Simulated scan of single mutants.
Amino acid sequence: MTRCTKLPLSSCLLYRTAMAEAATQATVGNSEFDRDTAITRREDGVYDVELSAGWTIIHAVNGGYLLALMGRALGDALPHPDPFSVSAHYLTASQPGPAVIRTQTVRTGRTLSTGQASLFQYEEDGTEVERIRVLATYGDLDSLPDDVRTSAEPPAIPPLEHCLGPADGQPSIPGSSAITERLDIKLDPATVGWAIGAPSGKGEMRGWFGLADGRDADPLSLLLTVDALPPTSFELGLSGWTPTVELTTHIRCRPAPGPLRVSITTRNLAGGFLEEDADVWDSADRLVAQSRQLAKAPRGQ
């Protein structure tokens, strides 16, 4: 049964109406996200994959989608099912098309296992190029204790019907924006000044998040979620591509069904780089994922 008792009543009604209308709603394991992150094991530790053009932004494949793809391969290679901590270094921009992921088990224990993985693509001359390298620790989220002691609070985001999406007049993004067709994002109006040429200068981005086909979140899709909202650099008055240099994500628990709330902040842009700290909350008011990434600031003004 869908749980959204923690959400504003109006948001719950909208969500349940959308659920009722989506007679063919996608499910975990049977969705575009699952198909586009599919892996084919060639041999132990080696996986063939196809990077879908549907997850591109501006001129490259989205980093969160890539992280989820790597996470699926590591989940197959390691004895534990769920990502706990995943750290990725983005070495070169990935392009739609075939790729290969090679994994290596670093250590296995009773409750945790650690592995590393690299994704490679080929240049026209056949040269192999490493695109992304990941080091990750996996465990079993269902085995974690229920004890929670936290000072963290869910972000204050207006109800869904008061938030803004692409249909509400956000400016088009130069180049490919295919990923926006696969996401259901409604941004807090307080963080979309960039869309009307009046950025707040605060380096904040907040909004509701889901997949456009209605698939509920799981630990793997949370790896996408942390890198799916527009960059905070937009609200700092900069525009253009904000390439990720390094991204570390912590998955804290299995998310409840329903829309997610995402809050991203940047406190310091200096030397041409900025950090983004993201918190992801589920419909049960639980902090389900956290991340920090270092990104290269866009050159646009």
Rank of each mutant, 00 (worst) to 15 (best):
P81K: 12
A99I: 07
L91G: 11
V134T: 08
P81N: 03
T108V: 13
R133D: 01
D142H: 10
G175N: 15
R182P: 01
L141H: 10
V100S: 04
L67N: 09
D142N: 15
I57C: 02
E128P: 14
S172D: 08
C163S: 09
G169C: 07
R102T: 11
Q104A: 13
L67Q: 07
T92D: 07
I101L: 02
Y122E: 13
V61H: 07
I58H: 00
L160R: 08
G169N: 08
G97A: 14
L135V: 03
V129C: 10
S85R: 15
T180N: 05
T105Y: 05
D146R: 09
A93S: 06
A178Y: 00
D146I: 04
P166N: 05
M70C: 06
E153I: 08
R72D: 07
A73S: 04
G63I: 08
A60G: 00
A152D: 11
G97F: 10
A68C: 04
P174R: 03
G63N: 08
P171C: 09
A117N: 03
P159F: 06
R110Q: 07
I132T: 09
C163L: 09
R131H: 12
P155F: 05
L135K: 07
D82L: 04
E128K: 12
L144W: 13
T111A: 14
L144E: 14
L164D: 07
D146M: 15
P174V: 12
T92P: 01
E130G: 06
P96E: 15
Y122Q: 15
F84N: 02
L119A: 04
I57R: 04
S87G: 12
T56P: 10
E130L: 09
N62P: 06
E130N: 04
A73C: 04
R131W: 06
V129N: 04
G75L: 01
R110V: 10
R133F: 06
G54R: 13
G54D: 13
P166A: 13
T137I: 01
E123Q: 11
A167Y: 04
A53V: 01
E124D: 08
A53W: 06
V100R: 13
S177Y: 09
D168H: 00
L78D: 02
A99P: 06
S177R: 07
R102Q: 05
P155N: 15
P79E: 00
I173V: 15
R110N: 14
I58A: 00
L119E: 03
G64A: 14
A178K: 00
A152Q: 12
Y138D: 00
P174A: 06
A68N: 01
E123R: 14
A117W: 05
H59V: 01
E181Q: 15
T150G: 04
T114R: 12
Y90Q: 09
L66V: 15
R107W: 05
E161L: 11
S85H: 10
I132K: 12
G97I: 02
Y138E: 02
T103V: 08
H162F: 09
L141A: 11
A93L: 15
P96N: 14
P98T: 14
F84Q: 12
L74P: 15
